[in-house]
């Protein structure tokens, strides 16, 4: 399974027109084992869920655009 680690993250309580109905949600910069970093919205976060830098997340499928979706 495709894995990555959380390089940094934030939980959003306000957002853009496109994402405002999804708050609160978790976004992160993820780091692949080869050191490459990329932005990703993270699925599977609920209020009170513990998140920390270095935590491992895994790919849980692809979105409509064919991009990997990562989950806690």
């Amino acid at each position: 399974m495709d894995k990555a680690k959380i390089y940094t993250y934030s939980i959003l309580f306000a957002s853009t027109e496109e994402f405002k109905d999804r708050v609160p949600y978790l976004t992160a910069i993820l780091e692949k084992p080869d050191g490459k970093r990329f932005a990703s919205l993270i699925a599977g976060w609920n209020a009170g869920t513990r998140v920390e830098i270095g935590q491992e997340v895994h790919s849980s499928g692809t979105d409509a655009g064919g991009q990997s979706v990562y989950s806690l």
């Binding site: 405002k20 976004t27 910069i29």
Partner: peptide
């Protein structure tokens, strides 16, 4: 609308479309 206007100053395809906002970027 203001948040969206400001978000256009980041990479739209790679970051804004992953739910990033400017507060989120600086929070990270």
């Amino acid at each position: 609308t203001v948040t969206s206007a400001i978000a256009s100053a980041m990479d739209c395809e790679h970051e804004a479309m992953q739910g990033f906002t400017f507060p989120a970027c600086f929070a990270m």
